[in-house]
């Protein structure tokens, strides 16, 4: 909403009972403000992911504190750690079980590229099996880095043509 109003809250004296906006803005606002992560903690990055959820870093400030251990209830898979080839199909299957729309954060060097594990056992980047929206560098990244990735992903979500995808019957996700 573009007004000269500088009040942070909704003000009935100015707006009355009507708010004019765009469907995209509303849908994306809803989606980006309540991202329920699927914590795919596979290695030490998982510990930093847990720290992000705790009070010092407080991922709840960005509406993503509801870690869901069921893919059916999750919006965003945070792949935190080394993905071995043995684990890779399970990661993909859990991703497949998540409901649209869904996003993926590759947290840390291992999930992004295989990291220091240049070996026969390690998938060289989780983007080989699932589409990744945001990569986080670090080994492991600090919680601030994960929160930054989360903010970047929120910005990305807010740019998506959500209404057209939802109501226009177009293909589900433009990842």
């Amino acid at each position: 909403m573009v007004t000269s109003n500088t009040d942070l809250a909704y003000n009935t004296k100015i707006e009355d009972t009507l708010v004019v906006t765009k469907a995209d803005a509303v849908i994306n606002w809803l989606r980006s403000s309540s991202i329920w992560p699927m914590p795919m903690g596979l290695a030490c990055c998982g510990i930093e992911l847990m720290a992000s959820g705790n009070s010092r870093f407080d991922i709840a400030r960005f509406g993503a504190e509801v870690m869901r251990f069921s893919p059916r209830q999750s919006d965003c898979m945070i792949v935190a750690g080394t993905v071995t080839y043995k684990m890779a199909p399970h990661v993909r299957r859990i991703y497949d079980q998540m409901a649209e729309p869904k996003w993926v954060i590759a947290m840390g060097a291992c999930a992004s590229s295989g990291g220091m594990y240049r070996s026969y056992a390690t998938l060289q980047g989780v983007d080989r099996i699932i589409p990744v929206d945001v990569y986080v560098s670090g080994c492991p990244p600090r919680p601030e880095a994960l929160l930054d990735a989360l903010i970047k992903m929120q910005e990305k979500i807010r740019r998506q043509p959500a209404a057209r995808e939802l109501l226009g019957g177009a293909k589900a996700k433009s990842a």
Partner: peptide, 20 residues
């Protein structure tokens, strides 16, 4: 990959790691 179905969908294999 251990799961052939996933391997078919993703076209990923347990390929040799790049040894830079």
């Amino acid at each position: 990959l251990p799961d052939l179905e996933v391997g078919e969908v993703t076209r990923a294999t347990a390929a040799p790691a790049p040894m830079v």
